[in-house]
């Protein structure tokens, strides 16, 4: 396959970027999207040009490092009806056709400043976790595991929410650049477990507050996030977050400043 790529090139956060066109030839349909970019980069290096930076690590859809906008869709999700939602590293070139033009852009959000080209800084998501996305259980203080029973239904639902890989595609896809789905997945995961109850109110209040502080937009329930999420985190989690938040505010929880 031969493809035309239009790739966002930006040397650093401080400099302006632009789309640059590259031609890649002999792309095998069995390549992953990132392998296709590897081929481009090797070619660029040998041509004496600057290779395209992009984040990646596990290349098996679990670490959440990778992620670019492909033809206007986060991880390309939603472009192809025939395969499940996926991460960029698990998208394969057989989904494209010979002669296609592919636009590749970084996640765009104030809270995700561009580092270089397609790599952005997502540490804002970690700071949301820092503000309350945990259960305080210092090492060594834990009771015997079977002293805490968790209904299978709750445990399964908590697991579903906990599979969020923190890739940031939800933010990238949301018209408001909101990280609501990310935050909601953690609030739901911990809020469904008995161990998560003592900190439940403070957790949700603080995490939402931090999300606002980081400069994310507010959620208006559009649903692009869930449609772009490689792990299929559902909109139900957002509703659950809102429910928890209202309960917490009624109970008098206020964000730490």
């Amino acid at each position: 396959m031969n493809l035309k790529l239009r790739v966002w090139r930006q040397r650093s956060a401080a400099e302006k970027g632009k789309m640059v066109t590259y031609q890649v030839t002999d792309v095998s349909p069995d390549m992953s999207f990132l392998e296709m970019l590897d081929v481009l980069n090797e070619q660029l290096i040998l041509d004496g040009e600057d290779p395209v930076s992009f984040d990646h690590d596990c290349r098996e859809g679990i670490c959440g490092s990778c992620g670019v906008m492909i033809n206007g869709r986060a991880h390309g999700n939603g472009l192809f009806d025939d395969h499940p939602q996926t991460t960029t590293c698990q998208l394969h070139m057989r989904s494209f056709k010979d002669g296609d033009t592919i636009d590749i852009e970084p996640w765009r959000a104030t809270a995700f400043p561009v580092i270089k080209d397609l790599a952005v800084d997502r540490s804002a998501l970690d700071r949301i976790i820092q503000s309350g996305g945990y259960i305080s259980a210092p090492t060594g203080t834990a009771p015997e595991a079977h002293s805490i029973l968790v209904a299978k239904k709750d445990s399964d639902a908590a697991f579903d929410a906990a599979t969020c890989i923190g890739c940031g595609a939800c933010v990238a896809a949301c018209p408001n650049a909101s990280s609501m789905l990310f935050t909601a997945s953690k609030v739901t995961h911990l809020g469904l477990m008995p161990q998560g109850q003592p900190e439940r109110n403070d957790r949700v209040v603080n995490m939402i507050h931090q999300q606002d502080l980081e400069g994310f937009g507010g959620c208006t329930n559009i649903g692009e996030c869930s449609a772009s999420c490689p792990k299929g985190i559902s909109m139900e989690n957002i509703s659950r977050l809102n429910h928890d938040l209202l309960g917490a505010l009624r109970a008098g929880a206020r964000p730490k400043s």
Partner: peptide, 18 residues
């Protein structure tokens, strides 16, 4: 024990045990 206390959602049986 430690991981359960942290909220790791291990697979469980219907009775709520691990």
């Amino acid at each position: 024990d430690q991981c359960v206390a942290q909220g790791v959602p291990f697979a469980r049986e219907y009775g709520g045990l691990l």
